[in-house]
């Protein structure tokens, strides 16, 4: 940083508004894809646990290991295989969402009261109807709690994907560090925090909207 220069140069921000919008969009896209794929995979894993409960141990062990690998180490490990690609970024991001979301979906499904399940089956719900019309809606608050944690975590992690050239708000942070220039660094940091807060609030609102019975 050049001595005497202000911490935030607003003129830089205004002249880079288009850039900022683009990086914000990339960031949202990277996060959205990761959460989407992660959610579907977690749903499948939770389904396996619902049918074969002994799988719960192995599945949490594997997703737990994925969760503990440092992100940079994972990227370093993947680059020789999948290159500096979006695929690399997403593999990393998705693998961090699995533990939280699988655990919450399983917990949510298991928390469905036994009497509710019994009366549903007793009245003639098929197994699939039981899952989608009774168990999933009732598990929704717990599932969405998992989605919220996974989403805020992923928004934070996505800043790292700039390192493998996938853009996102991390690009500004990286640029700021490389050029000793505080403005983009602060823009990147501030926007990723703001994005996390905004998306989290939106999810809370969504949850209140779709679970009127839980109020």
């Amino acid at each position: 940083m050049t001595p005497g220069e202000p911490l935030v140069r607003w003129d830089w921000i205004f002249s880079h508004l288009g850039d900022v919008g683009q990086r914000l969009g990339e960031h949202l896209l990277l996060t959205g894809i990761a959460i989407g794929i992660g959610f579907v995979l977690s749903l499948c894993l939770a389904q396996l646990v619902r049918s074969w409960s002994w799988l719960y141990g192995p599945i949490t062990w594997i997703t737990g290991v994925l969760y503990t690998i440092p992100s940079l180490a994972l990227f370093a490990f993947l680059i020789p295989i999948t290159g500096l690609s979006r695929l690399t970024a997403e593999i990393g991001l998705v693998s961090y969402t699995l533990l939280i979301m699988t655990r919450n979906i399983v917990a949510g499904l298991q928390a469905v009261p036994a009497d509710v399940r019994e009366s549903a089956i007793g009245m003639g719900y098929t197994d699939r109807q039981l899952l989608w019309r009774i168990e999933m809606p009732l598990a929704l608050p717990v599932i969405l709690a998992g989605v919220r944690v996974a989403t805020t975590t992923t928004i934070g992690l996505t800043t790292v994907t700039a390192l493998i050239g996938q853009g996102g708000l991390g690009y500004f942070i990286l640029e700021g560090i490389l050029r000793f220039f505080s403005t983009p660094l602060l823009v990147g940091a501030f926007l990723s925090i703001a994005l996390a807060v905004a998306v989290d609030s939106a999810l809370v609102l969504y949850q209140r909207l779709v679970t009127p019975w839980a109020r």
């Binding site: 009497d115 719900y125 009732l138």
Partner: peptide, 28 residues
């Protein structure tokens, strides 16, 4: 499944569906 749909079933804990209104519950 078809058999159960032709038999009324009531249990002590009632087992109403908490996420559905009374009308939706009755319409099961």
């Amino acid at each position: 499944v078809e058999l159960r749909r032709r038999i009324g079933y009531v249990i002590q804990q009632v087992g109403l569906f908490p996420h559905q209104t009374i009308a939706e519950n009755v319409a099961t």
